[in-house]
């Protein structure tokens, strides 16, 4: 079967797939650890800004791991990446449009 030259790439695929299972399990371990970390930090009663920054950073890291490895985003074509980045950009625009309103309320304007 090796002589027909077709089995080799298949075996290569399976090998690659085996290594992907390892990556999935490592990502699972990281996600579990990060979940424990975010809960642990919440009980440290840090100063408000530090607590928010830590929670946002860890949530962002977890979301990135899920997107890149479980959703295989890093292997997708540019058009799909641009589609998702556009949606994320629009959310940031929405937040920044609303932030000045927050400032005026706080200042009592």
């Amino acid at each position: 079967m090796m002589a027909d030259g077709r089995l080799e790439p298949k075996m290569k695929d399976i090998k690659e797939s085996h290594s992907m299972v390892g990556i999935y399990l490592v990502v699972f371990g990281c996600l579990t650890l990060l979940t424990g970390l975010t809960v642990g930090i919440a009980y440290l009663h840090l100063e408000r800004t530090a607590a928010v920054m830590a929670a946002v950073f860890i949530a962002g890291l977890k979301a990135t791991l899920i997107t890149l490895f479980f959703m295989h985003f890093k292997f997708e074509k540019k058009i799909i990446q641009v589609t998702l980045y556009t949606a994320l950009l629009l959310i940031l625009v929405l937040l920044f449009i609303l932030l000045p309103d927050l400032g005026t309320h706080r200042l009592g304007l």
Partner: peptide, 14 residues
């Protein structure tokens, strides 16, 4: 799953 990862700290921990 990803949405819950963001909702969890926002609603329960902060």
């Amino acid at each position: 799953d990803l949405v819950w990862v963001i909702l969890f700290p926002s609603l329960y921990l902060l």
